[in-house]
Simulated scan of single mutants.
Amino acid sequence: MVLVLGTLLVTVSVVLLALALREEPDQRGVARSLALIEATSTAPAALVAEADPPFRERTLDPLLDRSRTLGRRLAGRDAPERIRRRLDLAGNPPGWTVDRVLTWTVLGALTGLGAGALAGLVLGVAFPVLLVLAVGGTVAGFYAPGLLLYQRAYDRAEQVSRALPDAIDLLTISVEAGLGFDAAVQQVAQNTTGPLADELARMLREMQLGQGRAGALRGLAARSTVPELRAFVGAMVQADSLGIPVAQVLRVQSSEIRVKRRQRAEERAQQVPVKMTVPLIFCILPCLFLVVLGPAVLSIMDAF
């Protein structure tokens, strides 16, 4: 009986070993890896790209999509319209879209949170201070794209305000020389540079696409916050609707804008003494007192 059982166990072991080793040598683990490497190296580039997408498609694009969705939820339903308005005021910078601004808002908040927490850990501050730094970094990162857009829109408005008097003078001279209003605007757009020239060129393109002159002028005023430009557009729209000679309106507008430019310069000149008070008190006067009274203080200390 023992001999029969031993023989049976040996037979079963041999059968199981044969079943385990029945696979072909080419199908083993190392052979399969080599075959996969060879197939990948000889496969077309399109198949390789589909089988192994780049890091951006695997990680960055899903992260950006989730950030964009979260930004839309946090900003509210009217956020796209507000951001599009800010982009128009900033001149629609290249690469700036509504989706990108929303994405950068969320990423900026996450970056500010990490930077604030890291700064607190490096400085070794207490937990309340660490929490304040983290919250402050989050808020600063969240509002950073909006502040950057606001600054670009402000700089653009300043450039338009400085270039407007010269542009209207050139427009007046062109109209008085015999050109039509549209041709005069084209001359100003071609012979000048800057945001105002870009806006005038855009207005001409809108008129060429079939939009009326009054609508194109109102669009020009809507894309800017400069009061002088809005007043000029209102006067031109009224002159176009009432049939008033354009040259006369341009001459009056040119004179008024020159006066407003001089008044704005005088206003800023009057603000200079007030703005100089703070650096004068905290920066210049202490240094002056140190230079003037320093030797006297040293002499008094030596005497006593």
Rank of each mutant, 00 (worst) to 15 (best):
L107W: 01
L107C: 02
L107N: 06
G108M: 10
G108N: 10
G108C: 11
G108P: 03
A109V: 05
A109L: 12
L110V: 15
L110R: 03
L110K: 03
T111W: 05
T111F: 14
T111S: 13
G112T: 06
G112P: 08
G112W: 07
G112Q: 05
G112M: 08
L113A: 14
L113F: 13
L113Q: 04
G114I: 12
A115I: 12
A115Y: 00
A115F: 10
A115K: 00
A115W: 00
G116T: 06
G116H: 02
G116Q: 00
A117I: 11
A117E: 13
A117G: 15
A117K: 02
A117N: 09
L118K: 01
A119M: 14
G120T: 05
L121N: 07
L121Y: 03
L121W: 06
L121P: 02
L123F: 12
L123A: 15
G124A: 06
G124N: 08
V125Q: 11
A126Q: 13
A126D: 15
F127S: 13
F127P: 09
P128W: 06
P128T: 06
P128V: 10
V129T: 15
V129G: 00
L130W: 05
L131M: 14
L131Y: 00
L131G: 10
V132A: 15
V132R: 00
L133T: 06
L133C: 09
L133P: 07
V135M: 12
V135A: 15
V135H: 03
V135L: 15
G136Q: 01
G136H: 00
G136A: 15
G136V: 13
G137A: 11
G137P: 07
T138P: 02
T138L: 14
V139I: 15
A140Y: 03
G141I: 09
G141A: 05
G141K: 03
F142R: 11
F142E: 00
F142I: 02
Y143M: 01
Y143D: 00
A144T: 10
A144P: 01
P145A: 07
P145D: 12
P145S: 09
P145N: 08
G146V: 00
G146L: 11
G146D: 11
L147S: 10
L147Q: 11
